[in-house]
């Protein structure tokens, strides 16, 4: 896949963040090019989720800069909302709107934010639901769906906003084993279509197969980054070697 060297879609420069005495992000520098699939791995507590969440300001940063398509991330108000509309986010716990049907979950963003006419939004939503394979559930409410189905709806909800990039914060960690693959399959397809993606995950097979680049984080720092084959076969740092060793048993 050709990776453009022009303006990166996402860029983090010298990002630092503290939770009280805890230094959770230390001088993070990272850029994600258009169409790139970046997989972030690392032990729990390494700051990988926090980093992912800073990109659409669900977490604030103490210092440094975050740029989306070259413009600094706005701090508040309509500008911030408009930017978030362009960056999709998929959560570990799905977070579908509990009081809305599946269809309404997907159409809410287009109708309320993009002001798409309802019929058009619904047609597009049904098309997206068909793509992720849950169109037959459109009239149900989230609690009636399995975790795997809910997560696929969550992906469709993000896609409905026609995002320029998508963030995945451990999208399969809350799923039963038999449902992980149905969600990963949707993500693989997205990657193949050229979506710019930042994926925080523990799914090493996914990382190896789909990632253009693997970023390994520990203690709030980016310890190393490399192509998946290089990283998994020849890790440079001791931390990465230890980490890969520790998950081998699984």
């Amino acid at each position: 896949m050709a990776i453009e060297t022009a303006t990166p879609v996402i860029e983090l420069r010298h990002v630092d963040k503290h939770y009280g005495p805890l230094h959770v992000l230390r001088d993070i520098n990272l850029s994600v090019a258009k169409g790139e699939v970046l997989v972030v791995i690392g032990p729990s507590g390494s700051g990988k989720s926090t980093m992912c969440r800073t990109i659409n300001r669900l977490e604030t940063i103490d210092s440094g800069e975050i740029l989306i398509e070259g413009t600094p991330l706005p701090q508040e108000g309509k500008e911030l909302a408009a930017l978030r509309a362009k960056v999709g986010m998929v959560f570990q716990s799905f977070n579908l709107f509990a009081h809305k049907t599946i269809l309404q979950n997907v159409t809410m963003g287009p109708i309320e934010v993009l002001h798409t006419p309802r019929e058009q939004a619904e047609a597009e939503a049904m098309e997206l639901l068909r793509r992720v394979g849950v169109d037959s559930q459109a009239a149900k409410v989230p609690a009636q769906l399995s975790g795997g189905q809910q997560q696929r709806v969550a992906i469709a909800r993000s896609l409905a906003m026609h995002p320029t990039a998508m963030l995945f914060d451990e999208p399969t960690s809350a799923l039963d084993p038999e449902m992980i693959n149905e969600v990963l399959a949707v993500m693989v397809e997205l990657a193949q279509e050229g979506m710019t993606m930042v994926v925080v995950t523990h799914e090493m097979n996914f990382a190896r197969r789909v990632a253009n680049r693997v970023v390994f984080m520990a203690d709030g720092q980016i310890v190393e980054q490399n192509s998946p084959d290089e990283f998994f076969d020849h890790p440079q740092s001791q931390r990465a070697k230890d980490f890969l060793e520790s998950i081998k048993g699984h």
């Binding site: 509309a85 960056v87 959560f91 709107f97 963003g109 934010v113 909800r157």
Partner: peptide, 11 residues
């Protein structure tokens, strides 16, 4: 989570 999801679709 509901609020964060709402934020991230740009509401």
């Amino acid at each position: 989570g509901q609020i964060e999801a709402a934020r991230s679709i740009g509401l």
